[in-house]
Nucleic acid binder design. Structure first.
Length: 291
DNA sequence: TACCAGGATGCTA
DNA sequence: TAGCATCATGGT
């Protein structure tokens, strides 16, 4: 077991932040997280966090997974400021400050990139509980049996089952995307470490070259798997927030285009270059609990 | 019943 | 290049 005292770490909020779909609360208050073919149980009481794994496994995988080497205190301070409240958030931006206070324990996870590709292909036009169910079902069918749980399926397992292999899992029109991406990943998929060394732009282009991955999904993979924490996925919730909190009613909502939302992001969050994606995650998670 | 969900694709003008 | 219809399925 590895025990740590941590500021800016809230396992429950990470679990419910919409970036991870295989993280579950247990009846005893502990939390279990699955990533690729690994599994970890952890217990958090206040700042005290116990990770139930060997020190070797923690150092090799979970420490980076939870992004523990990054200084989150500095990013929170930049937005909230000191105790006098003089932060970089625009004067009057109560929404951002409230979102930051709510989400300051959220970490941007460095998840398995292949798992992120398939998970966020599934995520399109689906609600989060439904995404979880689909990923569970996919893992049960194609994932390696690890005794009392299933690993996330490999590209080989999905591709070798053929185009009809993914039927019957409530995936709908995403079936073709998943199968074709699995086949393409076998042919030209790159190791995670190679992708993490790319520029943000190159990584986005690489992800968008797979069937079923567009700008939004590519940004999610970049942010939640590849460590590009300036990525800013724009989904329906983010559009709602941007229009309601920042557009000032200048344009009717149905006239808003993607470039209008991008402009709002630049105007209101551009000065947080270096961790814009964390700001995105704060406001997204805050919006989820307010609804 | 009608509408919506952490959207992407392919066709049309 | 931009705008639009279409794509399954489950949940509210």
């Amino acid at each position: 077991m590895v025990s740590m005292e941590m500021e800016y770490f809230d396992a429950e909020k990470i679990m419910n932040s919409g970036q991870v779909f295989r993280m579950y609360g247990n009846d005893d208050g502990s939390i279990t997280v699955y990533s690729g073919d690994r599994r970890l149980r952890l217990v958090q009481k206040g700042k005290q966090v116990d990770f139930f794994c060997t020190e070797k496994e923690f150092e090799e995988y979970w420490k980076h997974y939870f992004d523990l080497d990054r200084d989150y205190a500095e990013m929170v301070r930049t937005v909230l400021g000191d105790e006098a409240g003089i932060g970089e958030a625009k004067k009057g931006d109560g929404f951002l400050k409230a979102a930051c206070r709510y989400g300051s324990g959220i970490r941007l996870l460095n998840q398995d990139i292949w798992e992120m590709m398939i998970s966020f292909i599934i995520s399109q036009q689906k609600q989060i509980p439904s995404i979880r169910k689909c990923i569970e079902a996919l893992s049960r069918r194609f994932g390696e049996n690890k005794g009392d749980y299933y690993a996330f399926p490999s590209a080989e397992a999905i591709a070798s089952a053929g185009p009809d292999g993914v039927k019957g899992l409530s995936l709908g029109y995403r079936e073709r995307y998943i199968y074709e991406t699995a086949v393409a990943y076998l042919e030209r998929g790159l190791p995670d470490e190679e992708i993490r060394k790319m520029s943000f732009e190159d990584a986005r282009k690489y992800f968008c070259s797979f069937c079923g991955i567009g700008e939004k999904v590519a940004n999610c993979i970049c942010l939640f798997g590849a460590g590009f924490i300036d990525a800013f996925p724009i989904d329906v919730h983010i559009k709602d927030i941007l229009y309601r909190e920042y557009a000032g009613g200048s344009i009717p909502e149905e006239k808003m285009r993607l470039c209008d939302y991008q402009l709002l992001i630049e105007e209101n969050f551009g000065r947080f270059a270096g961790f814009k994606g964390l700001v995105q995650q704060w406001i997204f998670a805050y919006e989820l609990v307010r609804k």
